[in-house]
Amino acid sequence: MEDILRPIYQERASQVNTLGVLIIEKKQKALPTTDTFDAILLIVVSEANEPVYIKHYSYGQKKAALHIVTEKQLKEWILMGSNRKVFEWIYSGQILFDRNEYFNKLKLELQDFPFYGRKMKMGLEFAKLIRRYMDGKAFFENKDFLDAYNHVVHSLHHLARLSVVENGFHPEVTVWNQVKQIEPAVYKLYIELISSEEPLEKRLELLFLASEFLIHSKSSQGASHLLEILKEKEKWSISEIIEHPELKNYSVDLGMLLEYLIEKGFIDVVNIETKGPGLYHRYYKVAESIS
């Protein structure tokens, strides 16, 4: 397949803003790494009009996909974990062109997983975990068990990914294989939820009891990125928190995370009087016991 695609990537490699070219060829039918294509050609560029540009090709009975991605978009996928296949592409792809060893350096960076990047990623996964867990609990209390089940499965996925990141690894496509080795307790919770013969209500009830402790034990690590930023000032309005450059990535999960951390004693609410009688501006600060 590489020979067939050579004219395409050679043309791109000659362009000055091309940082690197990878080819990822399908090896196992069961794995979704190449999205059913026989080959993926990943080209990373320093800048482009669009962050992602995709073209599909056919050759005989085979098919290939070309992905041209800006470096900024690639870094966002890596940080947010919003395109997990990209890790597999970088790890297992064959380097066809590598300006200034771009891909080799990126592979080393992913293996090292710098501590600050890890803290931010833990924060993002923890925020998603809390959102799904709290929503699932609300559905459960309203006896909407199927909706509760859906949210709980997602919350366990985020708990699994958080465990992987906490141990210094990037979550991959096969995250449960990673978790089975790294944190068997989380893996066991997941297996019991999806395979137990207990009625769904009973399964959910037991899971909420068991996962409460696990989530609480990860709160300090999971919230450390957010708390470090909040320590920079005495108090914050919600708009100041949302607009902080490093906290924008938390998106819709931020409000629920704040409420959870208030409930658990990590954050205090500061009420500031307004002109309206009995009405207060609500501000947030790191609890004195934490700082």
Results as ranks from 00 to 15, higher is better:
Asp3Glu: 14
Tyr9Arg: 06
Arg12Val: 07
Ala13Val: 00
Gln15Val: 05
Gly20Ile: 04
Gly20His: 00
Lys27Gly: 11
Gln28Val: 12
Thr33Met: 13
Thr33Trp: 15
Val44Ile: 10
Val45Glu: 14
Glu47Asp: 13
Tyr53Ile: 11
Gln61Ile: 13
Ala64Thr: 05
His67Asp: 11
Val69Leu: 12
Glu71Gly: 01
Lys75Val: 09
Ser82Glu: 14
Asn83Val: 03
Val86Gln: 02
Phe87Cys: 02
Ser92Asp: 13
Gly93Thr: 05
Leu96Arg: 10
Phe97Tyr: 15
Leu108Ala: 13
Phe115Gln: 07
Tyr116Gln: 04
Lys121Asp: 06
Gly123Met: 01
Lys128Met: 05
Leu129Asp: 03
Arg132Gln: 15
Lys137Tyr: 13
Glu141Cys: 05
Lys143Phe: 11
Leu146Ala: 10
Ala148Val: 05
Ser155Phe: 04
His158Asn: 12
Leu159Asp: 04
Glu166Val: 00
Asn167Gly: 09
Val173Gln: 05
Thr174Tyr: 15
Val175Gln: 02
Trp176Tyr: 02
Val179Tyr: 13
Val179Gly: 06
Val186Thr: 03
Tyr187Thr: 01
Leu189Arg: 08
Tyr190Met: 11
Glu197Cys: 09
Pro199His: 07
Arg203Ala: 11
Ser211Asp: 12
Phe213Ile: 10
Ile215Phe: 13
Gly222Pro: 01
Ala223Cys: 03
Leu226Ile: 04
Trp236Gln: 13
Ser239Tyr: 15
Pro245Glu: 07
Lys248Arg: 15
Asn249His: 12
Val252Ser: 13
Glu259Trp: 14
Tyr260Gly: 07
Leu261Pro: 04
Lys264Cys: 06
Gly276Gln: 14
Gly278Ala: 06
Leu279Met: 08
Lys285Pro: 00
Val286Trp: 08
Ala287Ile: 07
Ile290Ala: 03
